[in-house]
Simulated assay, not measured.
Amino acid sequence: MIPKAAQMLGLAMRARKVITGEGLVVEAVRNGKAKLVLLAADASANTSKKVQDKCAHYGVPCVSATDRYELGRAIGKDERVTIAVTDGKLAESIQRLLT
C-alpha cells in the first residue's frame, strides 16, 4: 500500500470514519454508509465475491489493496480483510491514491 494512502486510512480511523469486518462492511454498503471499500488481496474467494458483488450492486467503489496485515497496520489494528470508509472526502482521497 502506498504510504500516503495508509496515512489517510489511519486518519480516517482516528476520525471514526472506518468500519471493519466482513459483516459490518456488507451492512454499511447496504445502508449506504460506505463510500469506499478496501479489500485485501489475500481475502478468501468467498469473501471477495460477496463483498465485490455487494459493492457492484449498490454502486460503491471497491479497491483491492495489499495483504490483510498491511491493511490492519494502516489503521493500527491486527489483520483486517475488509475496510469501509464512511466519509466521502476521505474515501475520494484514498481511492485517488490507490488507483
Rank of each mutant, 00 (worst) to 15 (best):
M1G: 10
M1D: 10
I2N: 13
I2P: 11
P3T: 06
P3F: 05
P3V: 06
K4V: 11
K4D: 11
K4E: 14
K4C: 00
K4M: 10
K4S: 12
A6W: 03
Q7E: 15
M8A: 15
M8K: 14
M8E: 13
G10A: 08
G10C: 06
L11Q: 12
A12P: 03
M13P: 00
A15T: 07
R16T: 06
R16E: 13
K17A: 09
K17S: 08
K17I: 01
V18K: 02
V18E: 01
I19M: 07
G21W: 08
G21H: 10
E22K: 13
L24T: 04
L24D: 09
V26A: 06
A28G: 02
A28R: 00
V29K: 00
R30D: 09
K33L: 13
A34F: 00
K35C: 01
K35G: 01
L36K: 04
L36Y: 04
V37K: 03
L39W: 01
A40Q: 04
A40V: 05
A41M: 08
A41S: 13
A41E: 14
D42H: 05
A43N: 04
A43Q: 04
A43T: 08
S44I: 07
A45Y: 11
N46D: 14
N46H: 11
K50L: 14
K50T: 13
Q52G: 04
D53W: 07
D53A: 11
K54P: 00
K54A: 15
C55N: 05
H57Y: 15
H57P: 00
Y58Q: 09
G59V: 05
V63S: 04
S64R: 15
S64G: 12
A65H: 13
A65S: 15
T66R: 02
T66I: 08
T66V: 08
D67T: 08
D67Q: 06
D67C: 06
D67I: 03
R68C: 14
R68W: 00
R68L: 11
Y69M: 12
Y69A: 13
Y69R: 12
E70S: 11
G72D: 06
A74H: 02
A74E: 01
A74R: 02
A74Y: 00
I75L: 09
K77V: 09
K77E: 14
D78V: 10
E79N: 08
R80D: 00
V81H: 01
V81L: 05
T82F: 01
T82N: 03
I83R: 04
I83A: 06
I83H: 04
A84M: 10
A84N: 07
T86Y: 02
D87F: 06
K89D: 14
L90Y: 03
L90E: 04
A91T: 10
E92D: 15
E92P: 07
E92G: 09
S93R: 11
I94D: 02
Q95R: 14
R96M: 10
L98R: 07
T99I: 13
